[in-house]
Design a protein around this nucleic acid. Structure first.
Lengths: 348, 348
DNA sequence: ATGAAAGCGCTAACAT
DNA sequence: ATGTTAGCGCTTTCAT
């Protein structure tokens, strides 16, 4: 009974507001799908049509709704990264390079902090999977069976990083912590140090480096048994302050120490600081070794010997893995060992 | 010609795969919308129905597709944060607290790095707006007119941070850099310092602090004209290394300096390091002042006097602003000046 | 090179 | 307390 042409008073929907692809298409005098192609696959569209669509886009200030696009195409162009905490500076380099590499490829990074506990990590995982990211980058390897199951079930490409494991969920970019620890023991031994100690964050990867260090130290005859090597654990994330306190504690326990391997550069900086405050000569009386080779390591006084981990490369590789998968290309080797490098500076 | 009951061979759609709300609903013997309500607004659903839905969810391992939810409800539960770079540790505290506060409220953080240049920022903005986040947190205030326009046009709640301006785009959580600079000048003057210098990153906010410092220094009679105050600029993000080089340069220019105000704690740590390396007594011969009060500031040797900026509070306030908006509640005062605090430690 | 139709998975609006 | 219907804005499939 109403006029056929009258806009029927349909009950539906908050007219959300924004300019849609339909609006752009209408303005350009083409169908929505042509407008879509003009934006996504320009070479499928005639030059002149392309021009008209581009014109319409800039006149309207249209910004495509990627939520809708992602839903329709099952490609969100979102990538999630999970780090224990970003205030430990160790992972910053990786996050920065991930963000940049992904942005260059048209992907956006979602950041999640798991804390160093597992319960949060599992909860976070659901929040992440719900966004249907095109990939998930994990810091460290996923141990929780529940987490592995959910990740596998989601079908989302996963890159585990900063570690190696014979049983990766999917892809992997890392290095061997055990070997890194062993290499440090060798380095200190080669430098003539004989009474070595460990100052370490209480996270699992640091423990593994300690293990490698201790085993190698025993092999080299630096001690007869593991408990002869003083070991001080501090809570992760490690800080300069805990480095100072840590050295104080180690020195109280074993005043004749001649070398300390710290599980992070920040810890090592704390050790250098405490040594300065106490007048302990570095490297004269005490050699100090860090881990990570953060930006500041070459500029401390004395300059810090450390283990270089190329966080930027880790981020780039991880981004590459995920983008290749998302674009439907097969990645060759799904596991990359990026290794590490002993960087000898003044502190040893 | 085909049997009416036969699943009509419709041409459509990759069956993406995953379990959907429909599957859960079917299993629970309810309609999809009831299942939706069971998950989102449980108290609108009968106890027993709720139970059946929950059961179905855990049996299937269903994880809601938030892309679809966001599209339907026009609420993505995504929040974007833009920082110049996350490898400057200054913003980490804010990003961490943002991430945590938002996660607690069921929102997820998207991270963007603008670099310290404007062109990247504008491009980044479109990438962000395309995701239809429920809010955008900007580091610093948005100057680019084009950026402001797009942000305004998007209708997305915006929080500018780390600064004050009489013309915020929307909401604002910051403090006065000019006043902070002035307060430092007063502090150094009160400590009896008379030959002050500046070591500063070349970003705009640091310049503003310098301005406040210089004006106040002139007022206090520490110099007759601005160019009597040695000023060394280093590229942002600032580093320990540039702090060392900076002090060296300042000392070459003005050997009789008795105080340096650094635009970041990291720079100040570099200055302390260089002072140690040169045997310049701090605070005896040289007072050093940082900015930020990062975690390590209290543990340097000597402990660093600095300006405390509560990055955690900034993040919390920003998160609060955005969540309130997203939930449809009005925020009272849209501008919050969180201030700063001079933290006096051993270095001055 | 372009278009029509269908529907991605969910929720708002309007019932009952 | 639960269901029906339409459609969020886009892209896929199939057709021309």
């Amino acid at each position: 009974m109403s006029l056929p042409d009258a806009p029927s008073p349909r009950r539906h929907r908050r007219g959300a507001g924004g300019i849609t692809l339909g609006d752009v298409a209408r303005l350009a005098g083409v169908s929505p799908i042509t407008a879509s192609r003009a934006l996504n696959t320009p070479d499928q569209v005639a030059k002149e049509t392309l021009e008209r669509v581009r014109e319409a886009v800039s006149r309207t200030g249209y910004v495509p709704n990627r939520l809708a696009g992602g839903l329709a195409s099952a490609r969100s162009r979102l990538v999630a990264a999970v780090v224990p905490t970003i205030t430990g500076p160790v992972f910053m380099e990786m996050v920065e390079s991930l963000t940049t590499s992904l942005a260059d490829a048209g992907y956006q990074l979602m950041l999640g902090q798991s804390g160093y506990t597992q319960s949060r990590e599992d909860a976070l995982l659901d929040a992440i999977i719900g966004r249907r990211p095109d990939g998930i980058v994990l810091t460290g390897i996923m141990h929780s069976p529940e987490g592995r199951r959910r990740l596998l079930a989601s079908g989302i490409p996963v890159v585990e990083t900063w570690d190696l494991t014979p049983t990766p969920i999917d892809m992997l970019v890392g290095f061997s912590h055990v070997q890194a620890g062993a290499a440090v023991a060798q380095h200190l031994h080669a430098k003539g140090r004989r009474r070595v100690a460990l100052l370490s964050g209480d996270d699992e990867r640091a423990q593994r480096r300690n293990r490698g260090f201790i085993d190698e130290a025993l092999r080299l005859g630096l001690a007869q048994s593991a408990d002869q090597i003083p070991l001080r654990r501090v809570p992760a994330p490690t800080t300069l302050g805990s480095g100072r306190a840590g050295l104080a504690a180690l020195l109280a326990e074993a005043p004749d120490l001649d070398a300390v391997f710290c599980s992070s550069d920040l810890l090592a900086l704390g050790v250098l600081t405490e040594a300065t405050a106490r007048g302990v000569a570095v490297p004269g009386r005490l050699a100090v070794m860090g881990f990570g080779d953060l930006a500041f390591a070459g500029d401390t006084y004395p300059a810090l010997s450390t283990v270089r981990i190329d966080g930027t490369a880790i981020g780039q590789r991880a981004a590459h893995f995920i983008v290749e998968r998302a674009e439907g290309r097969a990645v060759g080797d799904k596991v990359v060992d990026l290794g590490f490098r002993i960087v000898e500076r003044a502190s040893t």
